[in-house]
């Protein structure tokens, strides 16, 4: 079963449109959703969760989110870019609220996570640091036997130590074969560590969605002169950066001449080049 099957997701605003986004997230996998600010990541995530209406088909854990919204959300752990709990509530009170909302809420798991993440049980939420707030949101998302985690910038604005701790929790979550994660983030290095698949959303369009390793195999970074670059077969160069010392180009490995040596790019390289060149192979 696929954790997510999105077909033709579209949403139109006055100044922005999300257009025809389709992708599939197989069960047990982690998909990283990358894109610049305003690319439509949050809009897409809200549509997937049924928080926002839009065009397209959204099948989450095998069911249509429009028809089975509340039922599906019982099995989905959600962390938005901010932990949205009332300021005066404590972790212990949050447990009481969530216990009434989720049929499979596990108090013991929640309090174990609260303890593991060194969060105070009785302190009001307003006195938490940003890191503590996000940790509490993640603890809540992991305490109701969710099969899918949907995370919208969960590590944004956090220091590397907290980020690492949080990524560890996500790793633990995916130890179960049927657990999947959709995570959006600006911090590409986090996604590179975590994800099996990477999707790149650019100005409301999905430029690609591919297996991370396949993506990194497909492209190479070539450092050469502008004239050498111009001699490559059409469609070889997917993005280019010029400097006083020459040219750095993201190229399709399969189309490069054999004698050219190229370096393995990082996901960040691929994203940056493609965002400027937008020539996907």
């Amino acid at each position: 079963m696929n954790a997510l099957e999105i077909t033709g997701a579209a949403k139109h605003y006055k100044d922005f449109s999300l257009e025809g986004v389709s992708f599939t997230l197989p069960e047990g996998c982690i998909l990283g959703l990358i894109g610049e600010n305003g690319a439509g990541k949050t809009t897409l995530i809200k549509m997937i969760l049924g928080m926002l209406e839009g065009e397209g088909q959204f099948r989450v854990l095998g069911r249509d989110i429009r028809q089975h919204g509340a039922e599906i959300r019982q099995e989905v752990g959600v962390v938005l870019d901010e932990a949205c709990f009332p300021a005066c509530m404590s972790a212990a009170q949050l447990n009481g609220v969530m216990r009434d909302l989720y049929t499979h809420w596990k108090e013991d798991v929640f309090f174990r996570l609260v303890k593991q993440l060194s969060l105070p049980e009785r302190k009001p939420f307003k006195d938490f640091s940003r890191g503590m707030k996000m940790k509490l949101a993640i603890a809540a998302a992991l305490s109701h036997e969710a099969k899918l985690l949907v995370l919208d910038e969960p590590t944004g604005g956090l220091d590397p130590i907290v980020r690492d701790e949080i990524l560890g929790l996500f790793y633990d979550f995916t130890r179960e074969a049927d657990h999947s994660i959709l995570i959006s983030s600006h911090i590409v290095t986090d996604l590179e560590k975590l994800c099996d698949y990477v999707a790149f959303l650019h100005q409301g369009k999905m430029l690609f969605m591919d297996e991370k390793d396949a993506l990194l195999e497909r492209y190479g970074i070539v450092r050469c002169t502008k004239a050498e670059c111009a001699a490559f077969a059409p469609g070889t160069v997917c993005g280019m950066r010029e400097s006083a010392y020459g040219v750095e180009a993201l190229c399709a490995r399969a189309q490069l001449p054999q004698w050219i040596t190229c370096a393995r790019p990082s996901i960040e390289d691929v994203i940056l080049f493609l965002a400027k060149g937008a020539n996907v192979v």
Binding site: K46, L49, G50, M51, L52, G69, A70, E71, R73, Q74, V76, V78, L80, E82, C84, F85, P86, A87, L101, Y102, T103, V150
Partner: peptide, 21 residues
């Protein structure tokens, strides 16, 4: 107003409750 301030009004749509509830 408190829900809006804490953005719980948006988050509640991601919880397993229908809009009617």
């Amino acid at each position: 107003a408190y829900d809006e301030q804490s953005r719980f009004d948006g988050f509640v749509r991601a919880l397993p409750v229908s809009p009617s509830r």
